[in-house]
Design a protein around this nucleic acid. Structure first.
Lengths: 240, 240
DNA sequence: GGGTATTTGTTCGTATGTATA
DNA sequence: GTATACATACGAACAAATACC
């Protein structure tokens, strides 16, 4: 009956992650898997699966016969690009107060280039939203969203959702689980300069993202233009 | 005795990864954990650890009671930013033939901004290398490397190493295991335009990286400027 | 709706290899 | 060299979610 049953190993991952953030510094050793399993009241296998996840996320480094070590700094954890966060949280993590302005939303025929990304047929409509996100009142991100249309979307999309699109999507059973993101650097053009109140050419970090539901269906395509002098993203890269 | 003993679950991960690349398409279900464990002759727990890492890498999606599904496209896997690859391999993955030119290497006093990154004391020297990487003969990446100096480095660094700095580092017991990378978009300046043969302002993707050894010591700091119209990086972002 | 087979999720006990002091 | 702490790996069993008839 519980709509949201998160796996135990995911919950354990979160617990350990919290522990790392509160009590441990980079390069420090965390308690042994044995101790963690006792402390958290779960099996060692579950702890191990949680640790594999954290290792792959770039938070931990496992050394055989020695222990598990923290590698990410607190800063890099807060702005980790591998974590799918709303712009709202990203702006907060950089120390600003988030806001939204210049919202446009409408139902349109699907653009040709978006069609391929969302895997939907011809002549289907999409619900299009564009927004400018602000940090302490200043424009910092410009976002264009494309959602496979379901009837009623244009009436349901109200001010409450301007700051959290993912919640809006859940109203329509689009539960976003992850996104595949392509990163590019671009120079501002007329449109983005106007949206972001720029009066000279600036470097923008462009995130082109296809968001998938828990069952693997694309439910949102978006282009996000971040002002790169105000924002940065971090990632842990591991050797194969 | 074996210098390189890779964990069993990592080997299993590679086997499954290979299987996915050869026999399965995105959105398709792979064999059950039971069958994989029989087929590969390892325990199901080990298969599960391998599947957890593949899930975190964005290759698989696990659905309780249903199965494990392929999600990543082959392209996005090849250019995954979370995998620490040499520029050489990145250029290859984009379908070009890699090369190197304009190599400068010298021993210098450590610059102030690099000092903080490499955690080394005052008055220490670094071995500095700058290189332009080419794709099919055209300049596409400009890299500046800073390595904590060990005597003899300037004599050991010869043409053989122009294409693989990580191999060079291993000669001096600097075994790179991972890097923490900060991503930014920048507009080309005079220096980068000259190095990359640009005749107009271009958007560059800047990767600022601190590379760490297996024991967590910084052994290399580098700034890499990628021509963003030729290169792209992909990342799977997962909801917390 | 109910029953059943399949598949992933979770646990326990145990044995083995590895790094460190 | 030895003891110890630790990560790695296995097998068997049961629980929970899902799909299908």
């Amino acid at each position: 009956m519980k709509l949201e049953h998160r796996s135990l190993y995911i919950q354990v991952r979160d617990k350990i992650y919290e522990l790392i953030n509160n009590e441990f510094e980079p390069m420090q050793k965390i308690p042994s898997e044995q101790k963690l399993s006792e402390q958290l009241g779960v099996s060692r296998n579950t702890v191990r699966e949680a640790i594999r996840t954290l290792e792959q996320e770039g938070v931990l480094l496992s050394r055989h016969g020695v222990g598990n070590f923290v590698i990410g700094s607190k800063k890099s954890l807060k702005t980790a690009i591998t974590t799918l966060e709303s712009s709202t949280n990203i702006i907060k993590a950089h120390g600003y107060i988030p806001g939204t302005k210049n919202v446009v939303s409408k139902v349109i025929e699907i653009p040709e280039d978006v069609k391929a990304q969302l895997l939907i047929e011809d002549n289907k409509d999409v619900f299009y939203i564009e927004r400018v996100r602000t940090a302490d009142g200043e424009a910092v991100v410009y976002v264009e969203d494309y959602i496979p249309y379901q009837s009623g979307m244009e009436f349901e999309y109200k001010e409450t959702y301007h700051e959290s699109l993912l919640e809006f999507l859940e109203k329509f059973d689009y539960k976003v689980s992850f996104s595949i993101c392509t990163l590019k650097a671009v120079i501002s053009d007329e449109k983005t300069e106007k949206k972001l109140d720029l009066n000279e050419k600036s470097a923008l970090l462009l995130l082109k993202q296809i968001h998938y539901s828990t069952v693997g269906v694309p439910v949102l395509y978006s282009d996000s233009y971040y002002l790169s002098d105000k924002f940065e993203f971090n990632v842990v890269r591991k050797r194969a």
